[in-house]
Computed example of a mutant assay.
Amino acid sequence: MSCHDAHHMTQSLLDREEYIEQAYFFRVYRERLEQNTPAQEILGLIREEILATTRLPMAIDFLAAELALHGRVSDGMARLSHYFTPFQTFVVSKAEDEQSRMDMRIALQVLEREAEYRSESPEPAAMFVYQFECLARNRLGYDYGLRAVAGDPLYNDDWRDWIERIRMQLGTVDFADLLYLRSQFHVEEIRRRNRDPEYRPSYPVLFGIQEGRIAWANLGKDPLYMFAALQRQLGYPAVPRSKPASSRPLFEPAVEMRFQRLEARLAMLESETKGEFDLSKFYKEPRVEPSDET
């Protein structure tokens, strides 16, 4: 038995309430990071809000301890492999990797939406396409990425074998092709073409008729079109995207004014040291300004 299989055996699907609390955890974590709250403080605060009947508060305690020790949340997630999936750990580790382009806020949003989907009635086909699109959109790399995906307890042996197989084929075979060839639509096409309604494929069929039709319609196209069509037609979960740079000011107006005043003072000091200080600029009606202390 490979170490991958051993890893998989330590993991089983969690109760629905765990995934609901996980989705809440990832969302609040992201929102508070956006408010520049330190990660250690966020973990301490969220722990109190999480439902105490779940295992998540204990997991958060462990993550906080690992963060304090090593400065990385993903190290803690990796050691809680019975609770967090390899994919969840992989996404966070990529966001914590300085070489990666993955932003932590997007990583948390990806995991929030994934946990939400898990709390409903997750289908392996939809979950796989969601996880694959996350890898593709964020350029996280297919080799380690698909290895992490294959370790998900939602997938049975047929799925894991197929994921391992396509890990080797990606780059040489079109992704839409890989999906189409494992669909019920492909089986129906063979039956029709060979006039053999009894035809049974020798391999497991993993995708339905609709998925196969959508894959077939997207052969040779950018796979992002196929992902969008699966979301539109079949309600597959949509992958969060990084937002374009905000047009909002970097600082709040009051802070912005204070910076401008500091810049003006610096400019004044610089010109004074150069002997270029011109007092006439300041011969204006005095205006009452709030003091720096307010």
Rank of each mutant, 00 (worst) to 15 (best):
T294K: 12
R287N: 11
V92L: 10
T85L: 13
S74A: 04
R287S: 15
S183A: 11
L69I: 05
V288W: 06
L140V: 09
L13G: 07
P240C: 00
F227E: 00
A228V: 01
V288G: 10
R241K: 07
E123A: 11
E18D: 00
V187R: 11
N194H: 07
R105F: 04
P122M: 09
A238V: 03
R193V: 14
C3I: 15
Y180F: 13
G141C: 04
G208S: 12
P240N: 04
D97R: 08
Q99P: 05
L140W: 07
I214V: 03
G145T: 00
V173S: 09
A95I: 11
I50M: 02
Y283C: 07
F175Q: 05
L13N: 13
M168G: 07
Q210I: 09
L67W: 02
L67R: 06
L135Y: 03
H8R: 08
A125H: 08
V91I: 08
S242N: 01
A229L: 02
K221D: 09
E256D: 14
E211T: 12
M257A: 15
E31P: 05
A59H: 13
L51K: 13
E66T: 01
R137L: 15
R182W: 15
G76E: 01
R32N: 13
D157C: 05
E112L: 07
D75Y: 13
F282C: 05
L56G: 02
P124W: 01
E198M: 09
R55T: 03
F259G: 12
F26A: 11
A150Y: 00
V91C: 05
G76A: 01
Y199I: 04
P253T: 15
K94Y: 04
R139I: 05
F132Y: 13
L279G: 14
M226W: 02
Y142M: 09
M168A: 13
I190Q: 01
A176Q: 03
Y117G: 10
L269Q: 11
P204Q: 03
P290L: 09
V110C: 14
A68E: 08
A68S: 12
P153K: 05
L67V: 01
D292T: 10
A52G: 10
H7E: 14
V149T: 03
E188H: 15
